[in-house]
């Protein structure tokens, strides 16, 4: 099986890339890490007339922490995120998601932006970004806009990004004191697996030993997009963290999950629902442990 024929473009700047995207429209596909795009083309799922390669654009590869904000350029590789000590220290759940993505070979090519834009419900990066309350910077020739990642995913493979837009960077606010997060993904093997289910949880405490003042729980693989579990979040806020509370939150997540679970999906609906609960409880416990430590 070989790749379809296409014209190849390697713009040197974001502006140039935006002009190309605007010009070619739906006939073009952006090549960031290529780990999804190459498979889609090889399997004939898509055959773009133009491929716009952006990993060479320096501006898209910035990784910086300044004034309480982590900025990740869209073309920062997942491997770089895994290796970043700063990210591991403050955004541990994001680091865990990055580490869970594919093999080290895949991570060396795959980009953070690509993992977000491809909008797959089993993706490893979005849940923690959502848990940390990240936002995305989308750029087009006429300017740029910032959208919350919460509002970004509209369906499997589809997002709020316009056909003339490019994701340039991801902004992740620094978690406040006494907050923590946890990410757990469940596959069949110990590594390099496509997730059966994944959950990321974030809680912020009202001081050490205090009540939960903010909570975000995100689950993947149970709906066309990653979803927040509002019912579980509500239940947590204002309460003192306990095992029993986390169990109740898990139960709420279980009830909120509506996985399809067909003969061809990676697991049955019943198993996925039970795992939503299990992983919610586990990630909340992780988040709590981290919150107590900082």
């Amino acid at each position: 099986m070989s790749l379809p024929e296409f014209d190849f473009h390697a713009p040197g700047t974001v502006e140039e890339a935006c002009r190309m995207v605007a010009g070619f429209g739906a006939k073009a596909k952006i090549f960031a890490g290529g780990t999804d795009l190459m498979l889609d083309m090889r399997r004939n799922r898509i055959s773009p007339e133009h491929v716009i390669s952006i990993p060479g654009i320096e501006e898209l590869k910035t990784l910086e922490i300044a004034s309480g904000m982590l900025t990740i350029g869209a073309c920062v590789t997942v491997a770089r995120v895994v290796k970043s000590k700063e990210i591991a220290a403050k955004w541990g759940a994001l680091c865990a998601g990055a580490k869970a993505l594919g093999s080290c070979l895949v991570r060396n090519l795959a980009t953070i932006g690509g993992n977000v834009v491809s909008a797959r419900p089993a993706a490893d990066i979005p849940p923690s970004l959502m848990a940390y309350g990240a936002s995305l910077v989308l750029k087009k020739t006429s300017g740029e806009r910032v959208v919350s990642i919460n509002d970004f995913f509209t369906g499997t493979g589809s997002t709020a990004m316009g056909p003339d837009e490019i994701l340039t960077r991801i902004l992740v606010p620094e978690p406040p004191p006494h907050s923590g997060a946890g990410y757990v993904n469940l596959g069949i093997r110990n590594a390099c697996d496509i997730n059966i289910l994944n959950v990321s949880s974030y809680i912020a405490l009202d001081g050490p030993g205090g009540a939960i003042k903010d909570a975000r729980i995100v689950m993947g693989c149970v709906a066309p997009t990653h979803v927040r579990v509002n019912s579980a979040e509500k239940l947590l806020i204002g309460e003192k963290p306990t095992d029993a509370l986390f169990q109740r939150a898990g139960e709420a997540a279980l009830n909120a999950a509506t996985p399809r679970g067909s003969a061809y999906s990676r697991a049955s609906a019943e198993y996925k629902k039970d795992m939503v609960k299990e992983l919610t409880v586990r990630t909340l416990a992780m988040a709590y442990r981290e919150a107590m430590g900082r």
């Binding site: 093999s103 069949i188 093997r189 110990n190 590594a191 390099c192 697996d193 496509i194 061809y264």
Partner: peptide, 16 residues
């Protein structure tokens, strides 16, 4: 075959 690749047909990797 719906898992005709070595991603979804899962053989043992070094970590397993």
């Amino acid at each position: 075959v719906i898992n005709d690749d070595l991603a979804e047909y899962k053989i043992t990797r070094a970590l397993d």
